[in-house]
Write a protein that binds this DNA or RNA. Structure first.
Lengths: 300, 300
DNA sequence: GTCAAGCATTTGTCCAGGACAAAGATGAAC
DNA sequence: GTTCATCTTTGTCCTGGACAAATGCTTGAC
């Protein structure tokens, strides 16, 4: 018998739920109910960890933990079961209707080819503005509905990343204006948003300098100074805890020079109120508009 | 006056030190000594956060927190000050002697060109085996000595990543054997190790399937099954807490099918004892040797 | 029936202070 | 100098309490 038990740190890694949260759920709702090891420390069986991953996913659909954790296993399984996919939706003819099934069939070469073909047919700008953003949303929602697994999302991301990086690499990299620093804060690991913006802005002749994901605030500020950038652009995914976004932006704003603009975009800022000193980009085209208005204001 | 105060969660993000650690340091060593906000919660001034980042860096050199946190500010500053770079070292003529200064001067185009040129001169295999591994180590150590900042490391990583991905994209992707799944566990965000292995193995005709970084164990196992891979290869950087590596490998091993090999490589496994069921790759060429021996055993 | 304002509940994160295993340093014996 | 045993340091876990912010609910006005 292969009974693996995980300690609380491993469960935090595996589920993304904090240690405090795991303990307080146990106290309040009676779940999870880990065993104890020889030292009295929590030892979670695999099936409880799986249930926690399910709960986490369902919370993304607006369900609250109090309900989910006190519900019976049967009710939970029903909520969690992938809904029969409305194949009618395929009639819309969108790319996502073609691609999500390919991802689910684990046909990587087909996914890669379909993406490449679509890019070449549409051109980079249209591809990013219409196809990639729609696909990202479709893949994310398919995960929340339980239709695809996390690793399938990773596979999709990796294919798309390779394609976008290749396309960006093929663009001319001049000494354009403005200079834009791209990155995400620590804990935010989604990279596609950055690559999309990098593609759009580079196409328009801006000079993009990417730090990749998860840069500490102090280093974002240092990099902005060292690279003498005009704009710092951050990307927040829907998965990022939204309560943290505005405080973070405020902290970073205080560390940047006044002449440097601060932009924040991605699904994680769609529902936020913009402070005066930060420019929120709720949708992708806002970035192009923002670029144009920066150039107007700075006489280019 | 611009006195930003950070709460304990923000300090954790910024420094990478856990909340428990921050509180126990305060209790034991009297540092950090945050103020309290209106609700009695810790509020860390910026200079204390900076000192914590310095301490974290010095700990990478083998210094222990008990010494560092009770040392005077002056002693600490002396330890932390970048040592005058022994320019004599430049006489070795290695690539790192050329590149690290370019990184420090923030001359991105020069870094990019130097890397590209070296790659073309050496060929991909030699470039990965000799140049990239040496550079990664040099950059990491330069950070530990305080010669370069985190953001400069990010810039280097981003340039190298673009180059390696481009080189990999140009390789023929056949239906080779074995099929290898590449990824890192959650909390391990270093991507260059993965790309290096992907380049080496793809060059030798293996079929590499990368999940990118930070895949939960459950999903690594699911992906291995769905993609019917022969080998799962994980990368651990020196920054990954080494105490966690072996338990992680054991957990994953238990979830993989017996016919699937498990490899672990990178600076994070150099000093570990290998369990029987996992193959530790302490140095890069071990991967090539491992590939050859897999093929011998499976009659290819 | 719709909307806003006020009230109640839920929820995540913080706190204090205790405990202890694992890793690292130290010293004794060979 | 090397090996083994002991002491010290250090990170992470524990319990149980507290409370702000977010969310949901009710009431009342139009």
């Amino acid at each position: 018998m292969n009974r693996t038990l995980m300690n609380i740190a491993a469960v935090e890694r595996e589920t993304g739920l904090g240690k405090d949260t795991l303990r307080v759920w146990e106290r309040r709702y009676g779940f999870p109910r880990p065993e104890r090891d020889q030292y009295g420390e929590r030892a979670y069986p695999l099936d409880q960890v799986e249930k926690l991953r399910l709960v986490k996913r369902l919370m993304g659909q607006g369900l609250r933990p109090g309900r989910l954790l006190t519900a019976s296993d049967a009710d939970l399984a029903q909520l969690g079961a992938p809904v029969a996919v409305p194949e009618v939706g395929a009639a819309e003819g969108g790319v996502s209707a073609t691609l999500v099934p390919l991802i689910r069939q684990h046909d990587l070469p087909a996914v890669s080819n379909a993406l490449r073909q679509t890019l070449h047919r549409q051109g980079l700008q249209h591809f990013v503005l219409e196809t990639v953003s729609v696909l990202n949303r479709a893949v994310g929602e398919a995960w929340m509905r339980g239709e695809i697994e996390v690793f399938e999302e990773h596979l999709y991301t990796e294919q798309m990343q390779a394609l976008l990086r290749q396309a960006i690499g093929a663009l001319p990299q001049g000494e354009g204006q403005p200079r834009v620093l791209l990155t995400t804060v620590p804990e935010e690991q989604h990279v596609l948003g950055l690559l999309m913006i990098e593609a759009l802005l580079t196409l328009e002749g801006a000079r993009c300098i990417s730090l990749g994901t998860q840069t500490p605030l102090a280093d974002i500020a240092l990099a902005a100074k060292a690279q003498r950038v005009d704009i710092v652009a951050l990307s927040f995914s829907a998965a990022f805890p939204s309560r943290q976004v505005l405080p973070l932006l405020k902290q970073l704003r205080a560390r940047l020079e006044g002449s440097c603009d601060l932009w924040a975009g991605g699904a994680g800022v769609e529902r936020l109120r913009a402070p005066e000193t930060v420019r929120l980009m709720r949708h992708l085209p806002d970035a192009l508009e923002g670029l144009a208005s920066w150039r107007r204001e700075h006489g280019h």
